[in-house]
Each structure stands twice: as C-alpha cells, then as structure tokens.
C-alpha cells in the first residue's frame, strides 16, 4: 500500500483534477448501486409502497413539491430519486457484466489469433473487420430486434458488439510478444502452448485493456440506454436509466419534465465520470506520451 501511495501513478492522480472528479463520480455511483436502495424509504417496484395520490409531484424546489420526494414522482407515485438509484443498478450491472464478458471472449480470441495465426487468425480477424465497419448501435439494435427484449439478451447483444476491440488489441500485442526472447525461451524449454499463453503472454498483453475496459462500461451504459429508450432493451419490470427516460418522454409534452430529465442527468454524470477517469488512465498507461 505504501509503495502505491508513493508511486508516480498516485502522485499524478492527486494532481489531476479530472481524474479526481472522474473517480469521485464513479465512486458515487458504485456506492449508490451498493447501498442506495437501503437509503430510500420507498421501493419503487413494490406496488404496496406506492400511493397514487402522490403521482406527478414536482421536485421539492418547485411549487407543489413534497420534501418526501426530492426529485418529484412519476405517474404511479414513484419517487424519481429512488427509481434512479434502482435504475442505476441495472444500468451499471449491464455495463460491467457485458464488459467483463466482452473482455474475456475478446482476449481469448485475440490470443488464439495472435499466437497460432493461420486460419483461426484469418477467420477471427475478418469477422472483426466486417463488424468494425458497422456502428455498434446498429448491430446491437439488429440483434435485439432478432432475439427480443430482456436483460440477458441485452448482455448478449453488447458482448457480441464489444469483443472485437479486445481481440484486435490483444492480437496486436501478442504478435509482438511472441517475437521476444522470453517466449522463445519458454518454447525451447518445452512448455505446452496453453501454458505459454496463460503464464507468459497473457500478463504482458493486459495493460492496454484497462483503458478500453474502463471506457467501454460507459459506452455500454449509453448503448443499453438507447436500446431501452427504443423499447428493445430491458423489460418494463427491470427499468434501467434509459427506460426511465423513455417512460418520462411519454409525459414530457404535458410539461412533466422531471421524470425524464433527472435519469438523463444520472446517465450523463456516470458516463462523464467514467470517461474522465478513462482519459487519465490512457495518459498514464501510455508510455509513448511520457
């Protein structure tokens, strides 16, 4: 721990305001996701705790607001603040799980393509090329239209979109690693291939993935929000931040702006925090810029 506190990385972190703001925003959301539901009195998905008399209350600082509902309520009398805490849970869960899945699959495929080369390499990389020439949102939209809505399906669609960037990066670093002497030495020593890949190549290709993985969580939260907004993402029983915005959009024209504006602010803060911190990591971990 003390070595970490004295490291150059930590020193630069304490001097970078964007890194501190970014990680503070991220920490806020992680905390909100973990303990948030215990802090609010109302569970927005427990029908018994809802009261229709409370519906469409404006935020507390607007005339007619109620201190019980700081950010107002929606048509069912749901506290918007509580909905955001529960919704951020689903959004962040999807973003993180899809990132881990993409990273795992992409890294394995990238290692195979880079280490073995040949036909496996050609197939994996051609698929990656084709996929990269189409916007991810369109691929995800198409997959969702084919498989239907659901948290599991959103995860599949995001993973199908997300693995490519890892596969490409890992393949590139693997190609340069296997030229190096330590890998040659491991080969000469007679280690089996899977052991060389796991023990020697893998640890040396992971660093660039940290930045990609960080930023990808933000990207995934945004894609999931867009899919849910279009009605092909998560189901109504598990509303993510994007679905909250969609539900709020339906009543926007009646002037009830708070049910859709606040969930959007939440997404913006979450993704902005991730991007700020990701930018800092990129500068720190890229030896070329130092």
């Amino acid at each position: 721990m003390t070595t970490f506190l004295r490291s150059e990385f930590f020193h630069n972190y304490t001097r970078s305001s964007s890194a501190i703001i970014g990680s503070a925003l991220m920490a806020f959301f992680v905390l909100a996701v973990l303990v948030g539901p215990f802090l609010v009195a109302q569970n927005p998905y427990d029908i018994a705790s809802l009261n229709l008399m409370d519906s469409y209350k404006p935020p507390v600082w607007v005339a007619g607001g109620d201190a019980q509902f700081p950010l107002g309520t929606d048509g069912q009398g749901r506290d918007v603040w509580a909905s955001i805490l529960y919704g951020a849970r689903i959004s962040l869960f999807i973003g993180v799980v899809a990132m881990v899945a993409s990273c795992t699959i992409g890294t394995v495929l990238g290692l195979i393509a880079g280490f073995y080369g040949g036909i496996a390499d050609s197939i994996i990389m051609r698929i990656a090329d084709i996929q990269l020439s189409f916007p991810s949102i369109l691929i995800a939209l198409f997959l969702m239209s084919a498989v239907g809505t659901g948290v599991d399906k959103v995860l599949i669609a995001l993973t199908a979109v997300g693995w490519v960037v890892y596969a490409r990066t890992v393949r590139g670093s693997t190609l340069s690693e296997i030229e190096k002497e330590y890998v040659q030495a491991a080969k000469v020593a007679g280690l089996p291939n899977h052991k060389i890949i796991r023990k020697h190549v893998l640890p040396n290709v992971l660093t660039p993935l940290i930045v990609i993985a960080t930023i990808q969580v933000g990207t995934f939260v945004l894609i999931e929000a867009s899919l849910s907004f279009l009605g092909v993402g998560v189901p109504i029983t598990q509303p993510s931040l994007g679905l909250l915005i969609k539900n709020g959009f339906d009543v926007l024209f009646s002037g009830l702006w708070w049910t859709s504006v606040f969930p959007g602010v939440a997404i913006m803060m979450l993704v902005f925090g991730i991007n700020l911190f990701g930018d800092f990591l990129r500068d720190e971990l890229n030896p070329r810029l130092k």
């Binding site: 933000g218 945004l222 929000a225 915005i245 926007l252 959007g264 993704v271 991007n275």
Partner: peptide
Amino acid sequence: SLPGFWVGM
C-alpha cells in the same frame, strides 16, 4: 457522455 436521445428530449 451524453445520451443523444436525452439531449433531443
């Protein structure tokens, strides 16, 4: 970092 659809809204 902004969701485009939200900006539109």
